[in-house]
Design a binder for these strands. Structure first.
Length: 450
DNA sequence: CCTGGAGTTGTCCTA
DNA sequence: TTAGGACAACTCCAG
């Protein structure tokens, strides 16, 4: 009797974002079909619902794959205990991570805080991850009609159809995940290291959301990639891709061992950092109207497609936190709502990384210059042009810094700064200096504290 | 127990 | 034009 429960006891902060809801709707539709339309879907309190079902249907065994978010761990621990007390056999499995977070520790038994030793020494020296097992030949699925309140009762779909472009680009569900993996390992993994940083290429796996929703396991991804390279883990593309899976793992590891990272700075030095409150600037950033083409292209890609290329995520994050001096948590919340692959562990750890507040984080002086980044990683301007069409007639030379273009060039390209494309909301050089000063000051202050 | 090298993702200035 | 160094501070671990 397969069940899906949308947990209504979930604390508000961790409830699904809008984009995630759309994905989940599609995903559950597909899962239901593959289970002969016998998936029981309900919302409510998982503990109460499970007790109900167990009693009504004389169920003797309950099984699930483990969830690793702190609030889920305490919930599931309690459910497990209550069910055991009722005489039920309960089994939980690892379907989500290559290595259990509690099994990877330093010699002194404390958790790693730096990625490379965590991954190379902590993970890779452990026994290899388990090999995926195929679907059982015979599944006998029980279906109890009156219990199935159905997908519609979850109210996942938004009232406005803003997801059209997402629907064209993504295929949620197990088949979509398998297709994407097959395409990636057969055509892209070898070139991954060379091409993954260019946002106008589709050189990344795009598996984030599929992994997050459990439509494919990280074990399948790990071994398919290795198999596609004939087991040659020296292959630079493969090595680079596996280490990215390592970063996914590290995020979950950090969240497990440091459960406050979704809300609090990992590094206490930042606890009194003077973040600026600037709703106008935050809104301009969210809507892709900062006047900085790479930033705007990224933020518009996020809004329109539910995703953003990794290179651009770093750069828009750096811009919000450093050039605008806005608290990383504002960025984290926006990504949480907009990203189809929104994941508490990855989102928290990555925002703290880019802000410099996190584990093994970017040093404070590393401030991305979105113009330089554009010239390096979007040389042709194709990426900017696809999301900022009002700039498309600008020559490559000025596509990343239209404010530097001579008036004549702007006229020819029909770009009127301040009218059909914004003037930059901050001066890049001055705001960079302001960030360096603020961070310098914070360092001095936090050192003088007891 | 101590020490020294290395550590995802950058930028700017100077020689 | 381009390469190298400065920009911190801390974690991890091999020797």
């Amino acid at each position: 009797m397969p069940v899906y429960i949308l947990d209504e006891t979930c604390p508000n902060h961790f409830k699904l974002g809008s984009a995630s809801k759309w994905w989940l709707q599609q995903s559950l539709e597909k899962l239901n079909v593959s289970l002969e339309e016998k998936l029981h879907i309900q919302k409510g309190d998982p503990l109460a619902l499970l007790i109900d079902w167990v009693k009504q249907h004389k169920i003797t065994q309950v099984v699930w794959n483990r969830c690793y978010e702190p609030w889920q761990i305490s919930r599931d621990t309690k459910i497990k205990q209550v069910l055991i007390d009722l005489g039920i056999e309960v089994k939980s499995f690892n379907g989500h991570l290559l290595w259990e977070p509690w099994q990877v520790l330093k010699k002194d038994e404390t958790p790693y805080r730096v990625f490379t030793p965590y991954y190379r020494k902590g993970c890779l020296s452990k026994p290899a991850p388990r090999i995926p097992t195929p679907k059982p030949d015979n599944l006998s699925i029980q279906y109890v009609d009156e219990q199935n309140h159905g997908l519609a009762t979850l109210n996942l779909m938004p009232s406005i159809n803003w997801y059209q472009q997402m629907a064209e680009q993504w295929q949620p569900g197990e088949q979509g995940a398998a297709d994407r993996l097959a395409e990636f390992v057969s055509q892209k993994v070898n070139q991954y290291k060379a091409k993954r940083d260019f946002p106008d290429l589709e050189a990344t796996s795009g598996l984030g959301a599929h992994l997050h929703f459990g439509e494919i396991s990280v074990h399948q991804v790990w071994y398919s990639a290795i198999d596609a390279c004939n087991g040659n883990t020296e292959d630079p593309g493969l090595d680079c891709f596996l280490s990215e899976l390592g970063w996914r793992e590290f995020s979950h590891y950090l969240l497990y061992h440091f459960p406050t990272i979704p809300k609090e700075n990992f590094s206490p030095k930042f606890s009194h950092f003077p973040w600026r409150k600037d709703d106008q600037a935050l809104k301009a950033w969210q809507q892709g109207n900062t006047g900085i083409p790479m930033v705007d292209a990224g933020m518009r890609q996020l809004w329109q497609t539910g995703t953003m290329h990794n290179r651009v995520r770093m750069l828009v994050g750096s811009f919000l936190v450093k050039n605008l001096l806005i608290d990383w948590r504002s960025g984290e919340r926006w990504f949480w709502d907009c990203l189809l692959d929104a994941d508490l562990a990855a989102n928290s750890a990555s925002w703290q990384w880019v802000a410099g507040t996190g584990a093994d984080a970017a040093p404070y002086f590393r401030i991305f210059n979105p113009v330089t980044q554009g010239e390096k990683f979007d040389k042709s301007g194709d990426y900017v042009r696809s999301y900022c069409p009002e700039l498309s007639d600008l020559p490559d030379k000025y596509i990343h810094a239209p404010w530097d273009a001579p008036q004549e060039i702007l006229n020819q390209a029909k770009v009127v700064l301040g009218e059909n494309y914004p003037k930059p909301i901050v001066d890049l050089k001055a705001s960079r200096q302001r960030a360096l000063d603020a961070l310098q000051q914070n360092k001095a202050l936090s050192q003088s504290e007891p």
